[in-house]
Nucleic acid binder design. Sequence first.
DNA 1: CGGGAATCGTGGGTAGCGCCAACGGATTGG
DNA 2: CCAATCCGTTGGCGCTACCCACGATTCCCG
Lengths: 148, 148
Amino acid sequence: METAPSRLRGKASWLINKTSLHAHRLITEGLSPIDARGYHFAILAALEEYGPASQASLSQRCGIDRSDTVAMVNELADQQLVVRAPDPDDRRRNVITMTPEGRRRLDQLDAVLGEVQRDLLAPLSPADRERLVELLGRVLDHHTSSSR
Amino acid sequence: METAPSRLRGKASWLINKTSLHAHRLITEGLSPIDARGYHFAILAALEEYGPASQASLSQRCGIDRSDTVAMVNELADQQLVVRAPDPDDRRRNVITMTPEGRRRLDQLDAVLGEVQRDLLAPLSPADRERLVELLGRVLDHHTSSSR
DNA sequence: CGGGAATCGTGGGTAGCGCCAACGGATTGG
DNA sequence: CCAATCCGTTGGCGCTACCCACGATTCCCG
């Protein structure tokens, strides 16, 4: 196999993009057999951590576009993992609530994604994995706080 | 600002995907004003490091699909940064050669992308940036060697 | 209290990226 | 010499992340 140019290998943006592709592939491979996708996990996780919420706050918390959130909530509602009801206090809003099935589904997705993390970070020691997560978290915090 | 669910923040795949998006945004913002794109840099870098090459070896080295390489070489050739000529030794192949303008362009793109790296990794110390690049490099090596 | 600004859900559309299928021309290997 | 392979090229697909526009609702302020 021919090696990648060292100028590329040294660019963090290149490494991140390529790694992101691998991660994305692993995720869809792991999730599509059980008819799920990454966004489902994000939304369920937000519901579990913060309780019932409007679609707007879900999309803001998960970094998903409002339009796309509609589709995700549709899918989750179709699978009875979530209930969408108009908010009596503010009739512009929908209140999205996780069902018990949704709660179970969240655990299932978390297990699958945990497996994916292990595959993805296979060559790294536990300490190195933590270090990577910490570094990326710092980068992400910086960019999401400065842009908002 | 509402915080992302901790279940998401702990997943390396999520952090990587989000960071990749920021990187991608910074890159296109930096490159589109000068009518360039990330792939251009990749191909020029490969040509500089390994000399004239066929499109097939370029796409393999850069991890770009053969189809997309055609378009990229078209764009680079339109801008006189690269010359495409049939290979007399193997008439299936084209030999792609970087022009002096291409060489200069490579330096320009490298400068812009260097700036992007600085913006992207702004919150990290030089040592941390190196660490991040090293960790991602290990991950990437593992996945590209095991799949090929 | 009234009306303009902002918010929410929703539908529609767009652009780029990564990928695959297929083909004709050329070369290689058995 | 025939089959398998390689190379460049075209065309198309699916997904993701966006953006805009719209009606309905609520908020804010004069």
